[in-house]
Design a binder for these strands. Structure first.
Length: 532
DNA sequence: CCTAATAAACAAT
DNA sequence: ATTGTTTATTAGG
């Protein structure tokens, strides 16, 4: 209901769900109305009977008779698809490629006959638990913070991470050795958990302008810090690590950063026939360059290439999706558009993150991002984006002014679709802007500064203690991804900080800004894709 | 051994 | 109470 029916129409595709022919084949994204759902529904039941499954015996509903069926094509009562796959389908079905948990539920109920009747009845059906479980477990699903009122976060699929990679088994370490111990520890920690005494955590609410880190890492970071202090052994586990070296790191990076550098990732991965290593380096460079004043040069380069790549990006996405599961053909045009839009959406929430921890959004986007908030009278969409970008108070203020409604950004964001970006770009020129741009530097710097401060106090401190050089040393040695990560971020922050402190460089924007009224032009030229 | 489903314990909101 | 995370158990390949 809440759905802005705009493009959504309805995700109700109906995997015809038949005994063995996999629905995956192709039919999937077709706008299939609720045709045969009713008819098929009955068939699904089978052994499911007491799906609830009493606490003692887990096996209850499971395969049982179903599995035995026909060469084992269908493993679950609903078909051969795993929960993960179903979820993927659900997410992909969404025009924006993102769904909230509730929406996923909804999709399940609507699209998969088996769940049709099980939807609303009891909220805590086992399958919902499983859905959640899968969402959390698999790295192919990423959670992005939802700016809307108190909505649950968006779930979307990780373009890269999904392929086959499961959850980032961080430190799977000790299992073999002292499983008991591990268990004990786990239980102990869980039951006892007075830990996480983080003094600020609760108090920071006012400062929470930025949701520090919506996702997984935050929670973990604490633990990790502990780990660092404790110096977890876990040595033996990774023999391959050495050889793998970068790759695992990257992977981890993906997991943690993906939200921030999704775009860059997409570029690199998509565009490149380049060997992985190079790609990685590119990434790093990319991230670093961001900060360097010279970035403009590179940006040119990138923008040039990005033009091509952008196209490809769609492919990359698709391919990854395809790999992840079937999804298949489906409309090209819509896909393209939706992809773009999805990208834009990526940039929105992601940029927020990127603002916090400057990592590696594509330069042009950065520019836009940076410029965006400044633009006063851009219009609703802008404000919505701005809202996303700023997230929180500033956004609210803007909202109040620009959009008295105060309606959830969600709705605004939805319908906009592809049109958002183009409209956004060229606008830059405006009388006020000249003035505002002058002042632009100020707000931006402020933002950056804040980001530095708020971004990651812990990291900063660690950075101060263990500056750049160390990281390189440790990196290969210990291969601690987390460490690496942190250090990396530290680097960023450190650099920024220093730069800010030095005041030597007047930001990247300086060079570009000098001609206030024109930059728009330059930008426009930058975005090859704009004119379409 | 690995994957996946399922149940359940909890942290946050 | 919902949403997320995480651990454990179990079954199947």
């Amino acid at each position: 209901m809440a759905e802005p029916a705009g493009a959504a129409a309805s995700p109700d595709i109906d995997p015809d769900f038949e005994p063995q022919s996999r629905p995956r084949s192709c039919t999937w994204p077709l706008p299939r109305p609720e045709a045969e759902t009713g008819g098929a529904a009955g068939a699904a039941e089978e052994g499911a009977g007491g799906a609830a499954a009493g606490p003692g015996r887990t096996e209850g509903a499971r395969a049982g008779g179903a599995a035995a069926r026909k060469g084992g094509s269908r493993r679950n009562a609903w078909g051969s698809q795993s929960y993960a796959e179903l979820i993927s389908q659900a997410i992909e079905s969404a025009p924006e490629k993102r769904l909230t948990l509730a929406q996923i539920y909804e999709w399940m109920v609507r699209s998969v006959p088996y769940f049709k009747d099980k939807g609303d009845s009891n909220s805590s059906a086992g399958w919902k638990n499983s859905i959640r479980h899968n969402l959390s477990l698999h790295s192919k699903f990423v959670k992005v913070h939802n700016e809307a009122t108190g909505k649950s976060s968006w779930w979307m699929l990780n373009p890269e991470g999904g392929k086959s990679g499961k959850a980032p088994r961080r430190r799977a370490a000790s299992m073999d050795n002292s499983s008991k111990l591990a268990k004990v520890r786990g239980k102990a920690s869980r039951k006892k958990p007075p830990l996480q005494s983080a003094p600020e955590s609760s108090a920071d609410s006012p400062g929470s302008q930025f949701p520090k880190w919506p996702g997984s890492p935050s929670s973990r970071s604490n633990e990790d810090s502990d780990v660092w202090n404790t110096f977890r052994p876990r040595t033996s586990s990774n023999a391959s690590t050495i050889s793998a070296r970068l790759s695992p790191i990257l992977t981890e990076q993906d997991d943690l950063h993906d939200e921030e550098l999704l775009p860059s990732l997409m570029y690199s991965s998509a565009s490149s026939n380049v060997p992985p290593t190079v790609t990685e380096e590119l990434e790093l460079i990319d991230g670093l360059n961001l900060m360097s004043p010279s970035s403009s040069v590179l940006s040119t380069q990138q923008s040039a290439s990005s033009g091509q790549i952008q196209r490809d990006s769609s492919f990359s996405l698709q391919s990854s999706n395809a790999a992840g599961q079937t999804f298949g053909n489906s409309l090209f045009n819509p896909v393209d558009i939706s992809l773009q839009s999805s990208v834009s959406h990526f940039s929105a929430p992601q940029t927020l993150e990127s603002l916090l921890t400057p990592s590696s959004p594509p330069p042009r986007d950065v520019m836009m991002t940076q410029v965006d908030p400044v633009l006063p009278q851009t219009g609703n969409r802008m404000s919505s984006r701005t809202l996303l970008l700023l997230g929180g108070q500033a956004a609210q203020s803007k909202m109040s002014s620009g959009n008295p409604r105060g309606k959830p950004a969600e709705q605004q964001a939805e319908p906009v679709g592809a049109s958002v970006l183009p409209s956004t770009l060229p606008i830059v020129t405006s009388p006020q802007n000249t003035a505002s741009i002058t002042s632009l530097k100020a707000p931006v710097s402020a933002t950056t500064g804040q980001s530095v401060q708020l971004g990651s106090p812990v990291l900063l401190s660690s950075a101060s203690s263990a500056p750049l050089g160390v990281n390189q040393d440790r990196l290969p040695t210990d291969l601690d991804i987390d460490m690496y990560m942190e250090n990396l971020e530290c680097d960023m922050d450190y650099i920024i900080n220093s730069e800010l402190m030095d005041g030597g460089l007047d930001f990247n924007f300086e060079p570009i800004l000098p001609t206030p009224s024109y930059p728009s032009t330059s930008q426009a030229s930058n975005h090859t894709w704009v004119p379409s």
